[in-house]
Design a protein around this nucleic acid. Structure first.
Lengths: 196, 196
DNA sequence: GTCTATACGGCGATAGAC
DNA sequence: GTCTATCGCCGTATAGAC
């Protein structure tokens, strides 16, 4: 692993856990195993490093959503349920990249808002589109109601995921996964065809 | 308004917007209209000030939820809908106290976690209980399904609120309120009695 | 590219006069 | 309680040798 890759990997974890202000260049250097000034051979300053990390994370998040939806299953309900569980599980397990994404989408560092929100908004859109396709399939196969549009359903799905993400700080992995089951039941009742 | 009240009011806004590390004692003093050392006549240090603010915010949040549910309406659906809208509206309007609550429940300052999560967890519980009572009424009056328990429904409600809260950074007030409508529709379909 | 040494600013916090 | 002055620390960032 080259130094630059190590810098990226270390930064992701530290930023995700300690936030932007809470992560010093010294701590990053420590984790990488080099001295602080050596970082500046790779990045002009802390902001440039953070922006580079963010770009990587944004792409990774969309890819994560894509993979989580790539489930072999007999019906759309199972696909959505498995994706939902994977999502929550990785969040609750404190997966650094997902935590990073959630944290800085909500609270971008002061001064970097304009540089970040554009790409964040784009990736939100992409992730939601991937889900919309699955939802639309479910509507075609008569598993999901057509009284609601696919976009609304996809939005709700992500709201629930993010709401559960918020809980990971004060609740344990088991508790969050248990809450996720409750939430899923309400969600599925909300979108399924009533006759079922 | 006495100095101490001014300190509290100023701190809430600054912490909510700029976070703990991002809010210096100097900035708080500036906003209050005094000099930095004068703050130390009222609080031993920054942590003590923050903890005092948090205590106030935790109580205020429960009170906010209580009030939002105190709606004169013919049916439970309307009560829940109005409460939901009030909640989202105040979030999207960047109401400092709700933002403060959401921010630091999810990302407590390093070193203060143990001191905060206990009271946070308690207030979460209280707020959810208030909602559970309303949901239970809806179940009795046969508006809400009894296939789901009131706790699950209340949890889902707050997940949706928090999920929508996350959006306030990158979307405008109008967009968030529009999303809230979509989300509400899925939620209501999920908890209503099917025959309706 | 990595190091040691260092500059410089902002931070939390204190001393002591009024 | 509020002020001016100041301390000590740690943050980002740079200079310059190897």
């Amino acid at each position: 692993m080259h130094t630059k890759e190590k810098i990226l990997a270390s930064s992701i974890e530290l930023f995700a856990v300690n936030g932007y202000a809470g992560t010093s260049m010294a701590k990053i250097a420590d984790k990488v195993g080099i001295k602080k000034p050596s970082l500046y051979a790779h990045y002009k300053n802390k902001e440039a490093l953070f922006i580079d990390v963010t770009k990587k994370m944004v792409d990774e998040y969309v890819e994560f959503v894509r993979k989580s939806l790539d489930v072999q299953a007999l019906n759309i309900k199972t696909v959505l349920y498995e994706s939902f569980k994977t999502h929550v599980h990785d969040l609750a397990r404190n997966d650094a990249s997902i935590q990073f994404y959630n944290r800085f989408m909500q609270y971008p560092p002061k001064g970097l808002e304009s540089e970040l929100t554009a790409s964040m908004e784009q990736s939100e859109e992409k992730a939601r589109m991937l889900l919309e396709i699955v939802v639309a399939k479910g509507q075609t196969s008569k598993e999901i109601t057509t009284e609601l549009n696919a976009k609304s359903i996809a939005r709700t799905y992500f709201c629930l995921i993010e709401g559960l993400a918020n809980e990971t700080t004060i609740y344990t992995l088991e508790e969050v996964e248990h809450h996720a089951e409750s939430v899923w039941n309400v969600f599925w009742r909300g979108i399924r065809i009533n006759l079922e």
